[in-house]
């Protein structure tokens, strides 16, 4: 009896153990198959800006590439407003099932770090998927500015503090951030003149209403080529294929790197297998010769980073801008 009882218990234990293993296996199988069958319906890529803008154009390209690789439509959903806060917040609230992705750009970090309040946490509310590309900032000046090189520009601005007016795309826009940061590092005193977006700001520097602007090279390349603007330096580690004659800041004697970047993220809690699958699809598409050529043709640098490197990239950005915030520049 005793033996029998213990035997029963042993059997029960064995049964329970195997059931547990079975259940674990089942669980694993379920999760594995979830990632395996992903995607079995259309994916939404949330763009927190209006259709037709820079981020939207990048997003539509990426959506097309992911869609071809994964065999499901990727629908771009524009959720503009509040300088991208509305769209990012919306994406953060979606189910983390891999069927909602977010197109990030630089403002994903700067909006929160330099802004007031904390509408979302850029480090915790999303799983980084892939960094797409970075479009380096250029320093361009109206030809009437008496500076042929970056050093001459710095000397000129130092000689007469407050002389140089630079354009921005509005408060805390990328050109504003670039100019403030460059000015602080070089010890220059310059005036910010805000314009409502890129078009008017470029017009202003071409017409000479402001002396200087720090936009992405793509935006001003035609004017640099025609001689309407003088590009003094480009804020990346290598020269831009769009304007190979323009030196980098480091070459011009003042190391400084800055750019507008684009990347993909998924709401926090998305299955790492799914994140990996999307990332691999995106990287596969981005690293084709055709895409590489297209991205370089826009004056951008291809990044195509995997999830771990993307996470590190975002963390670096957060750290950089937190330091800027602590300096009290904004």
């Amino acid at each position: 009896m005793v033996r029998g009882k213990s035997g029963e218990i042993a059997m029960l234990k064995k049964y329970l153990a195997s059931a547990a293993i079975g259940m674990m296996a089942l669980g694993l199988g379920a999760s594995a198959s979830l990632a395996q069958t992903y995607p079995d319906r259309p994916i939404t890529l949330v763009v927190p800006f209006a259709a037709g803008g820079g981020t939207d154009i990048q997003a539509r390209k990426v959506a097309d590439g992911i869609s071809k690789a994964l065999g499901q439509p990727v629908v771009v959903e524009n959720k503009p407003g509040a300088g991208s806060l509305i769209g990012v917040q919306y994406a953060a609230q979606q189910k983390p099932d891999g069927y909602t992705l977010l197109m990030m750009s630089s403002s994903y970090v700067t909006n929160v770090v330099l802004g007031e309040g904390k509408p979302y946490d850029p480090a915790a509310d999303f799983e980084p998927v892939t960094m797409v590309s970075i479009s380096p900032t250029a320093l361009v000046a109206h030809p009437s500015v008496k500076a042929e090189t970056l050093q001459e520009f710095i000397d000129l601005a130092k000689a007469e503090p407050g002389l140089i007016n630079y354009g921005t795309f509005g408060d805390r826009s990328q050109p504003h951030l670039s100019a403030v940061l460059f000015g602080a590092e070089a010890g220059l005193e310059m005036n910010a003149i805000p314009y409502n977006g890129g078009g008017p700001a470029v017009t202003a520097v071409v017409s000479g209403e402001v002396d200087m602007l720090m936009p992405t090279i793509m935006l001003v390349q035609p004017h640099v080529e025609s001689g309407a603007l003088r590009a003094l330096a480009i804020a990346s580690s290598v020269r831009s294929p769009l304007a190979p004659e323009v030196p980098t800041f480091a070459e011009a004697g003042f190391p400084f790197e800055m750019g507008t970047w684009f990347g993909i993220a998924a709401p926090a809690g998305t299955d790492p297998e799914i994140v990996k699958k999307v990332s691999e699809a995106a990287i596969g598409f981005l690293t084709t010769d055709e895409m590489r050529k297209e991205i370089e043709g826009e004056g951008s640098v291809l990044l195509a980073l995997d999830p771990a490197k993307t996470k590190a990239f975002i963390a670096d950005e957060i750290e950089r801008w937190t330091k800027v915030k602590e300096l009290g520049l904004f």
Binding site: G52, G199, V202, T203, E225, S226, A228
Partner: peptide
């Protein structure tokens, strides 16, 4: 002729031209 888009649609048209490697401007 100046690569200055006066409104959103013109900015998009400019984008469409750049995709095809046509650079608007005085040239």
């Amino acid at each position: 002729t100046l690569a200055i888009p006066s409104n959103g649609v013109m900015a998009l048209m400019m984008g469409a031209m750049m995709v095809h490697n046509i650079v608007p401007g005085p040239m």
